[in-house]
């Protein structure tokens, strides 16, 4: 297994009040993303655990693009990867943030 951790500065605090959310499942070509509101408002962290080695650069690019687009301030995102393609990763990250930003009711 390879693990990466990216700590970044985010422009603004992520919306909503939910403390956590989870999307996806660990299966071939898929991944799960657990998102938790546990960091200071302008920080975010993405932890990745993947069985596919040698894709550090790709992960870095996907994460940078995600932080740029969504500005997930205050969120820690933890990924268990089952060997997903970059577009699937981007989709799940976006879904995770959308879910935690949803209102409770």
């Amino acid at each position: 297994m390879e693990t990466f951790s990216y700590r970044q500065t985010a422009g603004r605090r992520s919306a909503g009040t939910r403390a956590q959310a989870i999307v996806g499942v660990v299966a071939s070509g898929n991944l799960e993303v657990l998102v938790e509101r546990v960091l200071p408002d302008t920080e975010c962290q993405i932890d990745v655990s993947t069985p596919i080695s040698g894709f550090g650069k790709v992960w870095e690019a996907v994460v940078a693009d995600f932080v740029e687009r969504r500005s997930p301030g205050g969120l820690k995102l933890s990924i268990n990867d089952g060997g997903a393609r970059a577009d699937t990763v981007a989709l799940r990250l976006a879904q995770a943030v959308r879910l935690i930003e949803e209102d409770m009711k």
Binding site: M1, Q20, I22, V25, V26, E32, L34, E36, S49, T50, P51, S78, N80, D81, G82, G83
Partner: peptide, 20 residues
């Protein structure tokens, strides 16, 4: 729940991904 991260302690041996 998944936030507790109580995952399998045996899958590392097989280099397999875990689920939260």
């Amino acid at each position: 729940g998944p936030e507790a991260r109580e995952m399998s302690p045996h899958l590392d041996l097989f280099d397999l991904p875990k689920q939260f």
